[in-house]
């Protein structure tokens, strides 16, 4: 069982300001998805190594400073003295 409060918590962690109607709708659907994923819990895998991507070191590029040529004023208009404006932190 996934509680409504838990979904509310997930929305907060995800920084999503859901309305009550949305919360209602997502609660049901998320519960179904999580129930499906719970099947992972039904098997024991203690002796298995998890799979992560491994990379050989020889192909790393040189550690050089490169110009990106990105002009922020093209993608946002809230720029001041070369910095992007952001909301205040409490």
């Amino acid at each position: 069982m996934v509680s409504r409060e838990h979904v509310k918590h997930l929305a907060w962690l995800s920084r999503l300001d859901l309305s009550n109607d949305e919360l209602e709708k997502y609660h049901k659907e998320i519960e179904k998805i999580i129930e499906y994923l719970d099947r992972l819990d039904s098997i024991t895998l203690s002796d298995v190594e998890p799979r992560y991507y491994k990379k050989s070191v020889s192909e790393f590029r040189n550690d050089e400073v490169l110009e990106t040529g990105t002009d922020l004023s093209k993608t946002t208009k809230y720029v001041k003295d070369g910095y992007v404006k952001a909301p205040k932190m409490r």
Partner: peptide, 25 residues
């Protein structure tokens, strides 16, 4: 306020994206 700005903005994701982000969390 920092968090309320992001939460408001990010609610413009569509339903499917919001669900997947939440299940991911």
């Amino acid at each position: 306020e920092w968090n309320s700005y992001f939460s408001k903005i990010r609610n413009n994701f569509g339903d499917e994206v919001k669900k997947r982000i939440m299940v991911g969390s």
